[in-house]
Nucleic acid binder design. Structure first.
Lengths: 119, 119
DNA sequence: CAGGATCCGGCAAGATACTG
DNA sequence: CAGTATCTTGCCGGATCCTG
């Protein structure tokens, strides 16, 4: 029965790729993660670095990432409040993927060129 | 002044990660690409393999992928019509990324540990 | 300073019917 | 067989106001 081992997808969420993209994708998660890969940042710092994103969206996105175990939220009981976000080990494990995604866009979208070896 | 070289993002589209995810992400692109990585497929074949996706969504998604140069649409002038979709070289260049994304989900989301060769 | 609560609008996705 | 046309809907992201 030479069946190719092709799985059926009744829902998009059954695809392993989709599962990961749900975690790192969406409109604002990539830039946030990209920044946190360089080091921890405070809430307001993120807000200033990504001016285009509304506050609510930022906080909700951070909460999602925290729920997924990608980032760690550390609140200091001070006045005024201080909250710092950093990558968890699980988040760190995305570094290679993020780097590849970034490289790919530079090579195939931004139009630059690096090795025109293919053909 | 030890400025960390952090770029500002006024829009999400300035992030290189986002740029790539726009191409391979979205709700249905991952399963389609994942299937095409295994070989060319016809329209109806894709439709049957991904029952959850509406026809309109499939055709539009394929068009998007074609526009982005990721896949190649080949129509045979026959009756009845036959159209085959396959990955372009640019699409092929995503193989490593797709594989990593898939592996990551299996290791960190689905909860399975496979090769553990890393490290 | 770091957010929560609300309300709203747009676009992507879904269902169904029709066509070359 | 391989789509397109049309209508509806659901969710995401945005703006504004409010709170510990």
């Amino acid at each position: 029965m030479e069946e190719k081992n092709i799985e059926k997808y009744h829902g998009a969420d059954e695809c392993p790729i989709t599962a990961t993209i749900d975690v790192i994708g969406g409109k604002w998660k990539p830039p946030i993660l990209w920044l946190l890969l360089k080091g921890p940042m405070r809430f307001g710092e993120l807000h200033k670095t990504i001016p285009g994103m509304a506050l609510k969206v930022l906080s909700r996105t951070l909460k999602e990432l925290e729920t997924d175990g990608i980032i760690i939220r550390k609140a200091y009981p001070e006045i005024p409040p201080r909250v710092e976000y950093s990558l968890s080990p699980k988040g760190e494990s995305l570094r290679q993927i993020m780097t590849l995604l970034s490289d790919w866009s530079r090579e195939h979208i931004m139009g630059e060129v690096m090795t025109e070896h293919s053909k």
